[in-house]
Design a protein around this nucleic acid. Structure first.
Length: 301
RNA sequence: GGUGCCAUAGCUCAGUUGGUAGAGCAACGGACUGAAAAUCCGUGUGUCCUUGGUUCGAUUCCGAGUGGCACCA
């Protein structure tokens, strides 16, 4: 399979990944895997900016709307499922396009993440309760005792990081740090990472305009449908969480829309931070289709 | 045209009894190994409108100019 290439098209939200990826997949005569942790939910479409029906007809997409917001899902499951789909796609195509903005999902596919046990739901809830009742310091103390190495390496101000380490340690009886190998897994195909970049002001303007479009298309109604499920992790998502605040009467609709724009900008910023450190990425402007296709042709095996 | 008020960060504004300045929002930078559109950490970015004067020293006091707002003509 070493003559196969996975073409990863990445960049912040609103940069123009969707249009470009479809053009490229069309030009290469192949299919697209979405690496977007929210477009994967079938119940969400307006707020996650899934490709339009017409676009989905032009090129076959995978991992869009194939999970439910009620299901538990994570980056490791994504890694496993994508590798499986890739195997069958590479049987048909020399190149496959993967596009999306979820850095961790992309990393899971390209480099893999270490094997960890699935956490018992009850254990997880107990730990969260302990955190709520006793605060973060009590988690830190427990971690220091059970897994001093993680205690040294983990961001001790971030409750999610400590909870993860504790969960694994308690469930397996082995320190979380012992599961981390710090080595990238070998993949039986080449990977070409294409990053999309444009002027910051222009990107923010695109984000603002797109949020207004989402509202015109019925984002408020889409969010209202899931209001009573607002505590689901899948709905802890920009575009929905702000509207839930509005439905709760805490903020006006205008304010909610403003916050969606701002939080989208912040999200874009975090994505750029994530991608910036990956030196394998070659950067292009999202409208330089021909340049990008030439680059792919030259560098695919 | 006259009178009054105002001019400080990207925005709204506070402040310095004269020793070059700060808050909210916005913005900026970063971390990230199974919740990742999540979660967490860090940063004030400034010709204090311009120009004379007083003063050891002016963003602050005084004069003039410019711009804005209000009222009177």
């Amino acid at each position: 399979m070493m003559n196969k290439t996975l073409i990863v098209i990445l960049g912040p939200t609103g940069i123009g990944k969707t249009d470009l990826s479809i053009d490229i997949a069309k030009a290469l005569g192949t299919e697209i895997i979405s690496s977007d942790s929210r477009q994967i939910y079938k119940e969400l479409s307006i707020g996650t900016a899934v490709p339009a029906p017409g676009q989905l007809e032009r090129v076959k997409h995978h991992f869009i709307g194939n999970k439910s917001i009620y299901d538990y899902y994570n980056a490791s499951m994504f890694e496993f499922e994508v590798l499986e789909v890739l195997e069958s796609l590479f049987a048909k195509y020399k190149q496959v396009v993967m596009t999306g903005g979820s850095g961790m999902y992309i990393q899971a596919v390209c480099e893999g993440i270490d094997e960890l046990p699935t956490i018992d739901q009850q254990l997880r809830e107990e730990l969260i309760q302990k955190y709520n009742a006793e605060g973060i310091e009590s988690l830190r103390i427990q971690l220091k005792m059970l897994d001093p190495l993680s205690y040294q390496q983990i961001d001790l101000k971030n409750p999610k990081r400590i909870l993860k380490a504790l969960e694994v340690t308690l469930q397996t009886g082995k320190p979380y740090s012992s599961f981390l190998t710090r080595t990238a897994k070998e993949r039986p195909f080449h990977i070409l990472k294409i990053g999309l970049q444009r002027d910051r002001e222009e990107l923010y303007e695109r984000i603002n305009v797109r949020v207004d479009q989402m509202v015109d298309e019925g984002l408020v109604e889409e969010a209202r449908r899931f209001f009573r499920h607002r505590h689901l992790n899948s709905l802890n998502t920009v575009g929905y969480k702000e509207l839930f605040e509005h439905f709760e009467g805490k903020i006006s609709l205008t304010k909610a829309i403003e916050l969606i724009k701002r939080n989208s900008r912040h999200y874009a910023k975090r994505q750029m931070s994530w991608f910036k450190r990956d030196k394998e990425i070659v950067w292009f402007h999202p409208e330089n289709n021909q340049k990008i296709i030439d680059f792919i042709q030259r560098n695919s095996s």
